[in-house]
Design a protein around this nucleic acid. Structure first.
Lengths: 190, 190
DNA sequence: TATTACCTACCTACTAATAGGTAGATTTAA
DNA sequence: TTAAATCTACCTATTAGTAGGTAGGTAATA
């Protein structure tokens, strides 16, 4: 077996959350997508809240690993940011995962179980922290010149990325992601 | 009667959409909020899709009127942008309407009835057009200096606003909206 | 080496609650 | 007195979740 049923369920659930958020999918959708009964999904994940919680734990791990890999493999900070943006650019243009799960859930955070909500909050904190530290490193190496504090610039970048995802989706134009995020990166050059 | 039942229904529905999107509320929620039966809501709005469609027509009108008012009442383009941002700033800090209905629906646009989806798309187009024309006017009066085309800068601003709303919500920090949008406005000054 | 026990994964069949929606009677207001 | 607004009382489909059982594998034991 190359992929466990649990992993299949999580993959499908992630796709569904990305498409329509927490209230936009059901166990029946997952059931249909992978060809097992609803009850079997409950065997692996007793409740929907539990399923999404595990999903977010997995996502957090993947995100952390991804950002760590970028940080260690790419020496120059501007290249790191570019790699991060390129990642999303290709996710969006290939429509494989045209939105960040956590950004999606952030919109409906008020309605979510607290367990899930805190995962979402943490993702925003982690991502902005990574961006801030990358910006700081770039400033120290003279590769960035910031108008404000790194933390502030990080928040601006993160918001631009999420807003660009939303515009790309709303307008049905994947290209608009790069059109928005590209200039935001370029203006950091000294 | 100072407010018709239809208007009350629309107001409540808007609040609910802002909180959790299209799939995040039901007729039962509206019923409970204003104290009439579900069936009575169906009398005014036969289907949920119809209700939200009317809601978006009303929203489009309000938005258009609002932006027109800003354009005619405020002579200088930078002041117009500031007024637009201030509007959202106060919506968010007062938690009266901490998110744009259309931005909310844009996230789940793939699952929405086409009628509603096109309203959402149009809102993104209208808003970016208004921003672009405001930027163009400001450039002509020497009050803005843009790095790129006005249309591109408009897309960046719109994405920043939406992304800032999302961050404010995700982090539970209304102040972060201004921290993100403020600098984006300031860097347009010549 | 049987055999008993246990486990995982999945199933059918159900439940209670909620979803959106309808039919038709009754009230309210012009 | 007619039309609009609201009601009660439904309906059907779907939701998340449960109950109880089966098939097949693994492990302990006699």
């Amino acid at each position: 077996m190359e992929q466990t049923t649990s992993e299949k369920i999580l993959d499908v659930a992630q796709t569904l959350v990305v498409a329509g958020g927490y209230n936009g999918f059901s166990y029946a959708d997952i059931s249909e997508a992978i060809g097992i009964r609803k009850a079997s999904i409950h065997h692996h994940f007793p409740t929907k809240a539990h399923l999404v919680s595990v999903l977010l734990q997995r996502y957090a791990k993947q995100a952390e690993d991804g950002l760590n890999a970028v940080s260690t493999n790419i020496p120059n900070p501007p290249g790191r940011l570019q790699a991060y943006f390129d990642h999303w650019q290709s996710c969006i243009t290939q429509t494989s995962e045209p939105f960040c799960v956590c950004a999606m859930l952030a919109g409906e955070i008020e309605l979510l179980p607290e367990d899930i909500a805190s995962h979402v909050r943490r993702h925003f904190e982690n991502l902005s922290r990574w961006l801030a530290s990358t910006l700081t490193a770039g400033v120290e190496q003279g590769q960035f010149r910031l108008s404000g504090a790194p933390e502030e610039e990080a928040q601006i970048l993160m918001a631009s990325v999420h807003g660009a995802m939303l515009s790309a989706r709303a307008l049905g134009r994947p290209d608009i992601f790069a059109a928005i995020v590209g200039p935001q990166l370029r203006r950091l050059s000294p």
